[in-house]
């Protein structure tokens, strides 16, 4: 019984894994930004392109939609005490423009990302997991306000989530 159950569990685990692997973000290989300091070793891509068509990018309303989304998200990050300290003294206009570029590239939009890697951009910021989740939650609210379908939102967030290794506690 133990053996049967364990092999059943392993079988389910394996099929789940195979299913997940097929659906994990494939990378359509946009070159990563260069790292200026060789001591910085990024562990997750900054621009992991997750699709080979422009459907998702269009779902987000293209460049215009992303610009409006980031305007709203930034206003929320400046309100939320979990995220405000990281943005209030920063160049918000530049951050918004870079995030538009980054999201655009990730969704196979016609953009080029001109910023740094996530690892370099967050070095020394001491972002905690709670700050990271706070940022994602406000982004979700902003995406909801723009009526971006939940499944499309999750595809973008799934692409951003692995960046936690280069952002949290760095």
């Amino acid at each position: 019984m133990l053996k049967t159950t364990l092999s059943l569990a392993l079988l389910l685990g394996a099929s789940t894994a195979a299913y997940a692997q097929e659906n994990l973000a494939p990378n359509y290989n946009v070159a990563e930004p260069a790292v200026s300091d060789p001591s910085i070793k990024p562990t997750a891509p900054t621009v992991p392109v997750i699709t080979d068509d422009e459907h998702l990018y269009e779902t987000f309303g293209g460049r215009e939609g992303l610009t409006a989304l980031m305007d709203d998200a930034m206003a929320r990050w400046l309100q939320n005490p979990k995220t405000r300290p990281f943005f209030e003294a920063a160049d918000q206009t530049k951050i918004k423009a870079l995030l538009v570029e980054q999201f655009c590239v990730i969704m196979h939009g016609p953009c080029t990302y001109s910023g740094r890697t996530m690892a370099e951009a967050h070095r020394g910021m001491n972002v905690k997991e709670g700050n990271f989740y706070g940022l994602v939650e406000e982004l979700q609210v902003a995406m909801n306000k723009r009526h971006i379908p939940f499944r499309a939102q999750n595809r973008l967030i799934a692409a951003l989530a692995p960046m936690h290794r280069d952002i949290i506690d760095k």
């Binding site: 685990g13 789940t16 894994a17 997940a20 692997q21 994990l24 973000a25 997750a44 992991p48 967030i157 799934a158 692409a159 989530a161 692995p162 936690h164």
Partner: peptide, 10 residues
Amino acid sequence: AVLDQDTILP
């Protein structure tokens, strides 16, 4: 389970 979206590891 939430953050590690680039691995099959649960």
